[in-house]
Amino acid sequence: MIYQRLFLTALLVVYAVLAYAATTYEAPFSYEPVGPRAFPLLLLILLAAGTVYLIVRPGHMAEENADTPLTGHVLGRLVLCVVALSLFAFFFERLGFVVSAFFFAIIMCRLYNGRWITSVITAAVMALAFYGLFDRLLDVPLPLGVLSGLGG
């Protein structure tokens, strides 16, 4: 409950920042009565009202969340997963899809309790198969990165 209130308070701060930003939105010349500012401000006011209501009366949580409590161990894994995703995004163009996806898939397989050997094989197959499927068959261009010398 306390976490939820903290989160909601953080949301209120975000609204305040956004509302401050929104007050500066002024159309240089206007041919309509409303302008770009009114609608976001209206939403922010409604959002703030709703969030304050929830801080006062948070209500009960669904059972789905009750039977999977967040322990420190799980939380650590979640952070690792997000870090892995971010690294994947960071290296996506730098190393190219095949290489970055290979390492990313190894980390992900390990995170979800795959064994080392199966993880490496799965990752290699996935990286190559998805590259072939999307870049070659489906015409979604994917960066080759460090491998750009090899393929063409």
Binding site: L85, F88, A89, F90, F92, E93, F97, A101, F104, A105, M108, C109, R110, Y112, N113, G114, T118, S119, T122, A123, M126, A127, F130, F134, V140, P141, L142
Partner: peptide
Amino acid sequence: PYWALVPGIAIVTAIGVYGVHATT
């Protein structure tokens, strides 16, 4: 098993998003 499923989902998701604008 999840260890085969989830990396696949993650990679396809990334491709789908990258494919829109080709920006990281």
